[in-house]
Design a protein around this nucleic acid. Structure first.
Lengths: 351, 351
DNA sequence: TTGTACGCGTTATCAG
DNA sequence: CTGATAACGCGTACAA
C-alpha cells in the first residue's frame, strides 16, 4: 500500500492538488472552509505533509547546509571552539530553515560525500591541504561555499580571525611584565600528529598555528616552540613537562596557542612545584571556559567563536539567496586573568 | 544559463539519457567506448554528476539520517560520551552511504525540523519527555527510528545500557571496601537544570539518572543524593564542595554518575584537603578518558559508547533496507582504578 | 479563491 | 550492452 500523496488528499477533500498544496505551504490565502476539509482529509489518510524529496526537487533547495571537517567527526567536537562555532552556525542558518549535515573531507570515504549530498551550501572548517580538494568538488557543483579559518582562493568568502595580531598582543603583555625567557606551546603544525620541539626548518601547514606563532615571534623571535599533537589538556601537560624539565632552560612565561594547552601547562607547573603566576606565567588562546580549571582564570585572547559560526551561517544564507558574501575578519579581545604576573625577581614581583 | 542536466550530456554524447545515467550510477555494465564519450561530454558541459535532489526523489532515498538531540546542539558535544556515540553512528550508517543531519527536538524551532527534512531514518538521543513528541512526528511520517538511551514504546528499537546493574556493581564494590556513609552525585533529574540535594519526593524523568540511582540504592538505600545540573567537571566540583562541607556528614565514598562529575568531586576533595582514595573513595561512570585527570585513574563503569552508536547505525540501516531491528542492551564493564580504597580506619586501610 | 497544465532531473523496467 | 517509456511527488504560472 502506497503512502498517500498530496493528490490523494486533494481528491479526498474534493479540491484540486494545487489548492491542497497551498494549504500546506501557506503561500496563498485559502478559505477557512476548504482549509479545514483538506486538513481533515490529510488526517484521515495519514498524510503528514509534502514529501521533502519532491519538494526540494521542485524548489531547487534541500534546506541542508553541509559542514565539512578535516578530521574524524568525533575529534571535531572535542574542541570547545568548534562546538561553539557549530552553535553559532546553527543560529546563522536558522533563517533558511536549514539543517546541518556533518561531512568529513576524505573524498574517498564510503560515507555520504560532498559529491552526492543534496546541499544548498557548504561550510569548510579548518586549514589543511585536504580542504583544497573538497573545495574543488563543491565549487564544481556550483554550490555556495564559505571557509572558516582556512585559506581558500580569493573568490571564496572566508571567516577569519586576527590570529597573528592577537597573539602578538599577548606576547607583548608578557614582555611588558619583564619576561624574556619565553616558550611557545603550539597547536599541531600539520595534519600529522607529531609532538615535540619544533625544528627550525619545520613546515607549518596549519594556518592557525603559523599565524599565532608569527605573532609570538614578533615579540620573541627566539622563543623555543613545543608543538602539541592536538588541543587537549593532556597535550599541554606533556608540553609543560618538557618545558619545565630542564631547570636551566626553564621559561618564566609560556604562550600556549589554546586554552586547553594552557590548562595542561599550568597543571604541569603545579606538578613541578612551580606557582602560577609567581614562578611562571601562562597565557592561553580562545577564551573558552576550561572545565575545572578554577581557581585559575587564564590570561587569554577571547575569540568570538560562536560569532564566527553565525557569520558563516549568514554568509551562506546570503549566497543561497543570490547575494554576495564578503570575507570577514574577527578580532580577539585580550583578557587578563590571574595566570600572568611579573617576571620572578622583577621589581614588583611577589616575594 | 541553466546548469547542464544528464539529458544534455546524453545528447552531447549521442546516447540515450538512460545510458548516461548508468554511466554515472554504475548499476549496469557499459562499454568502455560509450562510457568515455559520456564522461567527455559531461566534462565539456561542466556536468558533475546527477542532481542529488532528483535522484533522491526517484529512488525514494535521500541518504540522510537525522540525529535528534534534546538539547542545544553545542551542549550535546560537550559530552564525550555523545561524541563517541556520534563516531560510532557515523560508522554504523556508512554502509548506507548516509550522512548525519543534526537536529534538535524543539518542534517549534525555526530550524530544519523533523517534519521537513528529507530523512531516510532518525536516531533519537536522550531520555526526556520532549522526545516523545519527536517520536510521534517521525513515526507519523513513517520513517524508521531508533532510540538511544530513552524509553520509547515497545515497537521502537532501543539501544540501551544496563545502567542499573552496572551502578549496583560499583556500589557493591564500594560496600565491600567497608564504606557505609556513601553519597551519590547524580546527573540531572529532569530537563530543567536544578542543582542541589535531591528531595525524597523528587520526580526523575531522565531514564539514565533514574536507573543508575536505582542501582546505587539497591546497595545503599539511604544514600544522600546531590543532583548536578549537567555532566561537567565544574558541576562535580560544586557537588563535591557540598558533600564535603559538613564534617560530620561527610561521606567516605562518593558514587558519581559520570566520569566528569567524578573528576570534579576529586578536585573538590583535594580542595578540602582530603586524599583520594585514602580519605574518600570516588567512582565514576562512562569509562571515558577525562582530559587532564592524571595521575588518577577512575574506578568506573566503562560503557561501550561508540559501540552503541554503531549499533544504532546498524539498526537504522537494517530498517531502511526493509528489515526489522531488535532492541539491544549493552553492558558496562567494571574497571577498578586508584580512586577507591578501603574505608578509612578499616583494617587494611592506609594509615 | 480555486483549478489546469506542466516540468523539476532522475532512474527502474523492460524490450531489443 | 543500449534505448524508449514512465513515473517519483510536488510547486507554481496562469487562467478562470
Amino acid at each position: 500500500m502506497r503512502r498517500a500523496t498530496i493528490a490523494d488528499v486533494a481528491r479526498e477533500a474534493g479540491v484540486s492538488p494545487s489548492t491542497a498544496s497551498v494549504v500546506f505551504s501557506g503561500k496563498t490565502p485559502v478559505s477557512e472552509a476548504t482549509r479545514g476539509r483538506v486538513l481533515a482529509a490529510a488526517a484521515s489518510l495519514g498524510y503528514t505533509g509534502p514529501d521533502p524529496r519532491a519538494a526540494s526537487l521542485r524548489r531547487g533547495r534541500s534546506g541542508i547546509v553541509g559542514v565539512v571537517f578535516e578530521e574524524y567527526l568525533g575529534a571535531a567536537f572535542l574542541d570547545p571552539v568548534k562546538t561553539l562555532m557549530m552553535d553559532g552556525l546553527a543560529d546563522g542558518v536558522a533563517p533558511l530553515g536549514a539543517g546541518l549535515l556533518l561531512l568529513r573531507d576524505d573524498i574517498a570515504g564510503s560515507g555520504a560525500s560532498l559529491t552526492t549530498a543534496p546541499l544548498d551550501a557548504a561550510v569548510l572548517i579548518g586549514c589543511s591541504g585536504h580542504l583544497r580538494a573538497s573545495l574543488d568538488v563543491v565549487r564544481a557543483r556550483g554550490i555556495p561555499v564559505v571557509v572558516v579559518e582556512g585559506d581558500a582562493g580569493d573568490d571564496v568568502p572566508r571567516i577569519g580571525l586576527d590570529n597573528r595580531e592577537a597573539q602578538r598582543q599577548a606576547a607583548s603583555h608578557v614582555c611588558t611584565l619583564g619576561h624574556r625567557r619565553v616558550a611557545v606551546v603550539a597547536l599541531p603544525l600539520s595534519g600529522g600528529w607529531e609532538r615535540g620541539w619544533m625544528p627550525d626548518d619545520a613546515r607549518i601547514t596549519v594556518d592557525v598555528t603559523r599565524e599565532r606563532l608569527a605573532g609570538a615571534r614578533e615579540v620573541f623571535p627566539d622563543a623555543r616552540v613545543w608543538a602539541a599533537a592536538g588541543s587537549f589538556i593532556a597535550e599541554g601537560l606533556e608540553a609543560g613537562r618538557a618545558l619545565f624539565a630542564d631547570e636551566a632552560e626553564r621559561p618564566t612565561a609560556v604562550l600556549a596557542q589554546s586554552d586547553l594547552l594552557a590548562a595542561g601547562v599550568i597543571r604541569a607547573a603545579e606538578e613541578a612545584g612551580l606557582r602560577v603566576p609567581e614562578d611562571v606565567s601562562v597565557t592561553g588562546f580562545d577564551g573558552i571556559a576550561v572545565d575545572g580549571l578554577a581557581p585559575y582564570e587564564l590570561t587569554t585572547l577571547h575569540q568570538p567563536a560562536a560569532e564566527k559560526g553565525r557569520a558563516a551561517g549568514r554568509a551562506v544564507t546570503a549566497m543561497i539567496e543570490g547575494g554576495q558574501a564578503a570575507s570577514i575578519q574577527f578580532t580577539c579581545t585580550f583578557r587578563e586573568g590571574n595566570t600572568t604576573g611579573p617576571r620572578p625577581g622583577e621589581p614588583g614581583a611577589a616575594r
